[in-house]
Design a protein around this nucleic acid. Structure first.
Lengths: 243, 243
DNA sequence: ACACCTAGCTGTACAACGTACGTTTAGCTT
DNA sequence: AAGCTAAACGTACGTTGTACAGCTAGGTGT
């Protein structure tokens, strides 16, 4: 439309001082798949999941929205790539200690990677397509379980359980009804429930409210690992569900 | 604008045969919040989450899209109400057996309700606002843990862990890379990973693939409950994470 | 040196979504 | 019969993901 805006760097001081008019020094590094994905991850970490729109991402990269489609097929692929970038942070190289120790270290590293990008982690578990780094984590976890002596069937069950717990953990933050600030605006939303009807919740409400207690993830992980431990040591001692 | 279209029933045979012009027999039962929410839940159960649009729901109810907004504030409230309707199916009245037995029954019933509406359950955990039925489940779970002898702090941690595992379970179905059918269309999506690099996954792939094995949920639940059991019996015996 | 090719970026455009707004209508009250 | 009120309506707007076609710069062959 206007040639004013179509000439890059026209209003940029570093160009019209005129070092070499034929070369555009102000041009950002050329777009690449990695740059797009990194920028997207940064955007989500900083401004949240809903802030990730192709337009916003393009603006961030100083590029038109459709330029992104030269590097990612669609938004879905972009998110998959973001997830794999996040999972690249997981340390899968621990080889010290027995299987329980190693397994704990692996899952904790996994958890920390998700926690570092908790906004992205909220959609993670819904994803089906799995990337190379996700595969690597999976491989190490299953390998440890097999080495521990679990059967292939049980190893895959155990893997799923650990996986589900870890991935699910990020999704659940502060739940619990806010009876204080937001109550007035949800008038008629739900019929209010008096504290007498929920005595136990009321009794422990201080622990339920707010964000996750630090160490809460480890608490659940220890429960699961303790369960695995006794199952490995004396399978018949573990009570199981009927039917 | 045009009186032609603004006069209702003009082209409807059942009205202009004229049994009683003042009464409109063809009118469906009047819209209500409950009817809207039930229809929405049915729609999601049947056609999936993405099929839930206000337009589609209105069509299902033979009503214009905006009519829905007389009964729900917005789509967000609608989903919250759907979730609570789903949670109404959980049986919270079991009082037989010791705390472990009751807890297992409660969580399993919870799981079954989510499984019966697994499409809706996929967004469930992300929700923050909690309804009366969700509160009731929470109350019973925490009460059982307190009765078992856990401290308020530990009871709330245990509740969260059970909650996270159960809610998270629905979100993770068949993961694992499909090397077979979909591989050709994801060319260049991810660099392909040869089976030699993921020997353990390859060894147990038959168990990892496909939908959840029946009983897999119970497997993880038993692990968690076993962990709780030994923690209650002999807390010092449980290995915990360092730092 | 000049014409050509190609990869990548741009502008324009469209369909589907949630929902705000102002109007119309039906059924009850008086 | 007249009038009021709550519910449903039609229209429209802004935002989203993305298809399409044209432009443009950098490298290549002659």
């Amino acid at each position: 439309m206007t040639d004013q805006s179509s000439v890059p760097g026209r209003s940029d001081p570093t160009t019209w001082v005129g070092i070499d008019a034929s070369k555009d020094y102000t041009r950002p590094p050329p777009l690449s798949r990695a740059r797009v994905v990194r920028a997207a991850l940064g955007l989500v970490d900083e401004k949240g999941l809903t802030a990730l729109t192709m337009r916003a991402l393009a603006t961030e990269l100083e590029v038109s929205p459709m330029a992104l489609y030269n590097h990612v097929r669609d938004k879905d692929e972009l998110v998959d790539l973001m997830v794999d970038l996040m999972l690249a942070e997981v340390d899968t190289s621990v080889t010290e200690g027995d299987w329980l120790t190693q397994l704990r270290a692996l899952v904790r590293s996994y958890h920390q990677a998700l926690a570092a990008h908790h906004e992205l982690a909220r959609v993670y578990s819904v994803r089906v397509r799995i990337g190379p780094h996700g595969l690597l984590i999976m491989e190490r976890t299953v390998a440890l379980l097999l080495e521990a002596g679990f059967s292939p069937a049980e190893a895959s069950d155990a893997f799923f359980v650990l996986f589900i717990y870890t991935a699910g953990f990020q999704q659940i933050g502060d739940i619990v009804p806010r009876r204080d600030s937001a109550t007035r605006e949800e008038t008629g939303y739900y019929p209010p429930l008096p504290p007498q009807q929920i005595p136990s919740i009321t009794a422990v409400s201080q622990h339920l409210n707010g964000p996750h207690r630090p160490g809460r993830f480890d608490y659940g992980l220890d429960l699961l690992l303790a369960g695995l431990q006794v199952k490995m040591a004396q399978p018949e001692k573990v009570a199981t569900a009927p039917q």
